[in-house]
């Protein structure tokens, strides 16, 4: 679905005369491969290059070196720009800055309008995607009246209306409250499960990553760890090096293990922790 080969990108800063002042390598030798239908998470601290990578996946930025392929099309192929963007939709951080029109349903219809979809089909698509993100009852409302989480769901619907094969969520929850955060992540999960859309979630909240199929950890422009969430979170100390935190239960289990409690590595949810902890207690005859 999405493949990068030795992808590298330089941010070039120029002075007023256009001379190169400094070159910052934001991405360096990235090789990733995302399969159709996967839920992929990209983790990284601020400045690790994760957003820059996201912008390469739908041809907003062009690689300095290497190649990016989306659904078999190379992103540098200018003639197929719309095809690439149609297949790999993107949702940004700030919900206010990506809703373009004044009524929810009109905004969701904006993408299909640009693609030249016939009027009748636009209406069908808008209704269907608003239903799938649970915003159908707000279709006639002004986006200004919605909460952050609702706006972000409308933004996701706007992308889904273009029938993409893949959606890239670039820190979609960074500006939301905990309730909105849950709404958005649940929506993304559901789209992935029910509609089979490939989801690439870029985030620095560990809790959002636990349900992913594959996790890529990035640090200073490089992919430094790849694996399932369990594999990644088993390496708590390494994650800390990359200025990342693990979910609280995982950290707790890790610390207890260091103190000699026999718990497995890579515990992801409170339920798992409870089960493992009970087992550990039983093994020691009820006392730790």
């Amino acid at each position: 679905m999405i493949r990068t080969k030795e992808l590298a990108f330089d941010y070039i800063r120029r002075d007023e005369e256009g001379n190169v002042e400094s070159v910052t390598r934001a991405l360096d030798d990235i090789n990733i491969n995302v399969k159709q239908g996967d839920f992929v998470a990209i983790l990284g601290a601020n400045g690790s290059g994760k957003s820059t990578l996201a912008k390469h996946l739908n041809a907003i930025l062009m690689p300095t070196e290497g190649e990016v392929w989306v659904n078999g099309i190379k992103t540098t192929d200018e003639d197929n720009l719309l095809e690439i963007r149609k297949n790999a939709g993107m949702v940004f951080q700030n919900p206010d800055n990506q809703i373009i029109l004044t009524v929810v349903e009109e905004d969701v219809g904006f993408g299909p309008e640009n693609l030249g979809v016939p009027t009748k089909e636009i209406w069908e698509r808008v209704e269907k995607v608003l239903k799938s993100v649970g915003m159908l009852e707000f279709r006639k409302d002004s986006p200004n009246k919605l909460s952050g989480g609702q706006k972000q769901r409308v933004a996701i619907a706007g992308i889904m209306a273009m029938k993409p094969k893949c959606i890239i969520l670039d820190e979609p929850t960074a500006m939301l409250d905990p309730v909105g955060r849950k709404e958005v992540i649940a929506t993304a999960r559901e789209l992935n499960k029910k509609e089979g859309v490939t989801v690439i979630l870029i985030t620095h909240y560990m809790e959002e990553v636990t349900g992913a199929d594959v996790v890529f950890v990035m640090d200073s422009g490089k992919v430094v760890m790849t694996g399932t969430p369990r594999q990644i979170f088993s390496r708590v100390d390494q994650l800390k090096q990359f200025r990342l935190d693990v979910p609280q239960v995982t950290a707790l289990a890790h610390d207890l293990r260091k103190k000699g409690v026999p718990l497995p590595e890579g515990i992801l949810t409170p339920e798992e922790f409870e089960e493992a902890f009970t087992r550990a207690c039983d093994a020691r005859g009820g006392a730790i």
Partner: peptide
Amino acid sequence: GDLAMAMEVRCYHGGEGRTRMKP
């Protein structure tokens, strides 16, 4: 700037070849 990017992501390319939801 953000809005322009959001519009590009949703395949906006001017009035050419555009259909209307509410013609």
